[in-house]
């Protein structure tokens, strides 16, 4: 069933796959980001209570969703790296980690900027905010663990184990607003049945989520290409590639 995936275990094929995918992701990213930001920040109606301040959701919510999405893809890559011992998957873990860390930081910073005028506090140690902060530390932990080892094989294994173990945090982040009393409001988008968000705000938000997902894809692909080249720099195919240019 998974036979078609096997060739991509080879670094060269994976590099070529990155090259073919990159333009698609770039086009989707640029198009949806322009549409989403203009639609969300300029044309969507203001909220009845928060007025224009609510527009931070067009950046905060996509980055928060993607911070968890990027983590799950990193963990999947880590499982593949550990169980099937495929080095490209290890490189993918390292390619995703800083991207995820940045997007988690964006979610935390935009949330704080919104929290000050709306809640009255930059930061509150409630379950949602704390678990999201732990997610940032997990990303940073995976990164620093990888760079702490001289031997890159051991480094990849250690980073992958931490990435997998950290998955436990994902359901905690998601359900934190249901399990405990938090200052952070509950889930809006997954509350599909009750129309918690008006369609005129929902659709630009969706476009922005797609835009952020594509953006994470673009940056990850570029980073993965670099990681592959760096790891394979003594191989003939890389030499050939470099002398061509």
């Amino acid at each position: 069933m998974w036979k078609w995936l096997h060739p991509y275990a080879k670094a060269e094929r994976a590099y070529q796959l990155c090259n073919t995918l990159l333009p698609y992701f770039t086009v989707v990213c640029v198009a949806t980001m322009i549409i989403g930001w203009i639609w969300g920040l300029a044309y969507a109606p203001a909220d009845y209570q928060q007025k224009d301040s609510y527009r931070i959701i067009f950046i905060h919510v996509p980055s928060a969703i993607l911070s968890m999405g990027a983590y799950s893809s990193m963990a999947i890559a880590a499982i593949v790296a550990l169980v099937w011992q495929i080095r490209n998957a290890e490189l993918a873990v390292i390619a995703i980690a800083p991207v995820g860390a940045c997007i988690t930081a964006i979610a935390l910073i935009t949330g704080a900027a919104w929290g000050k005028p709306m809640w009255g506090a930059w930061w509150v140690w409630d379950a949602r905010l704390t678990s999201e902060l732990i997610l940032l530390f997990l990303y940073l932990g995976v990164l620093s663990l990888y760079h702490a080892f001289e031997d890159k094989k051991a480094a990849g294994r250690a980073a992958s184990i931490l990435a997998i173990v950290g998955v436990i945090n994902l359901p905690i982040i998601h359900y934190s607003v249901e399990w405990w009393n938090t200052l952070h409001q509950g889930a809006t988008i997954t509350k599909l049945d009750t129309k918690a968000i008006d369609p005129s705000m929902f659709w630009p938000l969706m476009v922005n989520i797609v835009a952020f997902a594509a953006f994470v894809g673009v940056v990850t692909l570029i980073r993965l290409k670099n990681e592959i080249l760096q790891r394979e720099k003594h191989r003939p195919w890389v030499r050939q590639l470099l002398t061509q240019e």
């Binding site: 109606p45 203001a46 909220d47 009845y48 209570q49 928060q50 609510y54 959701i57 709306m118 809640w119 009255g120 506090a121 509150v124 200052l183 409001q185 509950g186 889930a187 809006t188 509350k191 918690a196 968000i197 008006d198 005129s200 705000m201």
Partner: peptide, 12 residues
């Protein structure tokens, strides 16, 4: 005193 926001967003 901190304000708690609900999860509903809609135009006025």
């Amino acid at each position: 005193v901190l304000a708690k926001h609900d999860e509903e967003y809609m135009p006025a």
